[in-house]
Amino acid sequence: MEWDWAFVWQIMPTLLEGLKITIIATVLGAIVAAVFGMVLAIARRSSNRLVSRSVGFAADFIRGTPLLVQLYFIFYVLPDIGIRLSPLTAGVIGLGIHYGTYAAEVYRAGIDNVPRGQWEAARAANLSMRQSWIHVVLPQAIPPMIPALANYFIAMFKETPLLSAITVLELMNQAKSIANSNYRYIEPITMVGVFFLVISLISVVALRWLEERYARVDER
């Protein structure tokens, strides 16, 4: 079987349609992960040991099991208890929760890296807990986290093809349905690979830039 450029151009609109869903899922998933990760990170710092322990275990559990199975769980098990989600919603929640546990580790490391002295100084300056978080700790903790978070969001982007398993019509699923109806696998599957490779290579460049810009706090 030979590579056929005419076929590539013919399937391009469908693939771009799928790419749109892939990007939507990535962006929404990243937002859910960023928020959920923050909740996890704060809950893990809780002074109540029961809360911090069980949240820590739950995060370890989610990180130790495959995203695909978690997606199946959300998509197939939740309807039994009356929660019916559209495939895309289920996918976004799955991605968000899975990568939220990774984001939580990034937040935790970022917050732990703020020197103790900063907390003590905030307290000495009579700032409330809320004020010291917002004005002292987070502004120092967040910039170094940005490259690491971006790294996980790129990883998440690459995992979005898994959503095709729960019938989200993203890039991979469009490619598969083209392949199945035309009996031609080379072009669609290769084009999916090319799309992902191009976008990841661009994001790697962007990531380098973010690292240059944010990672070195101590040099400022």
Partner: peptide, 15 residues
């Protein structure tokens, strides 16, 4: 590292 395991697997299996 630039493409996902899923895409690679399909590529190996189908292409």
């Amino acid at each position: 590292r630039g493409t996902s395991i899923f895409v690679q697997l399909f590529w190996v299996y189908f292409v």
